[in-house]
Write a protein that binds this DNA or RNA. Sequence first.
DNA 1: AATTCGTCCTGC
DNA 2: TCAGGCAGGACGAATT
Length: 574
Amino acid sequence: MGAADAPTWIVLGRAAEAIVAVELAADGSESGRTPLSADELVAWIAAREASAPPRWVWNDTPGWYDPVLARGHRLARCHDLRLSHAILRDSAFVADDAAVRTAREWDAAPAAPDLRPALFDLDRDAESSRLPDGIDAVLAEFARQRDAVATATEPARLRLLIAAESAGALIAAELRSAGLPWDAAEHDRILTEMLGPRPVGGGMPEKMDAAARLVRIALDDPTARLDSQPKLLRALHRVGVLVESTSRWELAEHRHPVIEPLLEYKKLSRLLSANGWAWLGEWVHDGRFRPVYVPGGVVTGRWASSGGGALQLPRQLRAAVRPDPGWRLVVADVAQLEPRVLAAISRDTALARAAYGTDLYAGIVDLGAVTSRAEAKMAILGAMYGATTGDSGRLVPRLRRTFPRAMALVDEAAATGERGGTVSTWLGRSSPAPSAEWLERQSRANQVDATSDAETRARRDARDRGRFTRNFIVQGSAAEWALSWLADLRQRLATMPAVPEGRAAPRSGIAFERRPHLAFFLHDEVIIHTPAELADEVAVATRDAATAAGRLLFGDFPVDFPLDLRVADSAGKA
DNA sequence: AATTCGTCCTGC
DNA sequence: TCAGGCAGGACGAATT
């Protein structure tokens, strides 16, 4: 079959006793149907991908793609029906009466990460996945989704969003497969340096114990319990440290001999419990940290993670992120992504110009809106998060004069949210409707006999929701840019040469992991694991992908996305 | 005993 | 690290 005849989509689903692959032409008409046994499925997928990559359509990416990855194959494109459904169901770009909105059986929450290759166990009970997987149901949902996009007010943007979201699903699976190269010995060294040697019998590490002893001396209580917030609070009160909480920032405001060792104890205790030896043993195997990424796990479209705290790795441990011998890490993050995205989606050329080719905050200082970089940063964050008081809130009005378009967009988003309306990101992900309780409290507060208490609460609810919708359009649109960046970069890396098998980590027989590949993603940062000789080429590709993502989403609007990028032997600060 | 809630700290 | 958005994880306390 020549590329001209290649199907646009191949839809996978379950039939009576097997799996069936249905090929669809560009107009949606069926052009082929192949029954497949579980055993032959992966080989068939790989063969079809090799001839002319279609867009694979399936109910949920991990169930179908993990077994393909495990057998060493990578796929270029997919359409993830679950993720796309969640977007289309709520999108304000989609017609109110679109059938996709009422297909409730596709509302399944992101499945708890199921790492077993359950898909190919034809006898598994329906319990393990509540998502439809029968081929007729899958084809019907795909048709509903294509119809919803075709009749939407912004079909091109929704197509981009669905493609980016689906690419994210592939990337999440590949990130987990490849893992983040992790030097357990270096991690152990850091722990030993900070906490003391790993205790053999389950006791407290030396340096933590030393800090605890100093705290107990200062508290004049040899048996004080430091891990119980209420007990610690009472002990502090007894020695005259009248804090309301035991949080670090409040303790730091007091002067007392107990403060310094207590802060030290809390720091070490946190390190031990969150990322100590237990974490290392549980999450790092064969030199890789493999968290579960959850694309679309956050309402705004950001990814969440489940297990291992992948999105909260403390800075002090990043030195343990190390490439394999002969390999390098390319570590890149976008400088001030969200305000740049705000400039683009509001078409605020003044803000874009302040950011262009430089440090955005410095650019704002140059415009005279504020007098220091620190003020610029606080003002911008306040604008995006809805600060009304304090230093940040005080600075926001100055931005309103300097960047009226950008500020009008976020202010309008907040006003819409306060009224109970929904807002949408650049590509069309819409905020969820307010809860029934929220609406109930608003309407109760509007009745003539409303108590002032009810009015106060409703007002606060409304403001909370306004801050949410204000931030939603910025955070969500930034997530769309980041996904586009990642998807573009992934395809560039896929064209780079693979090194011979011996040059990759021993565990990795997977072909794409023998060429430069994504190893970590965190909102606006990416880490690529690459053979050393390709590192410079990867760095260029990473920057080019950022430029391409900006063009794809914002056309020729003059906003740029400069990267802080370095090639390194460690993800820790050089 | 098991589950949920609150506090604290980490990341963006 | 005061404020103002989005998260996850550990742990102890409260609830069932």
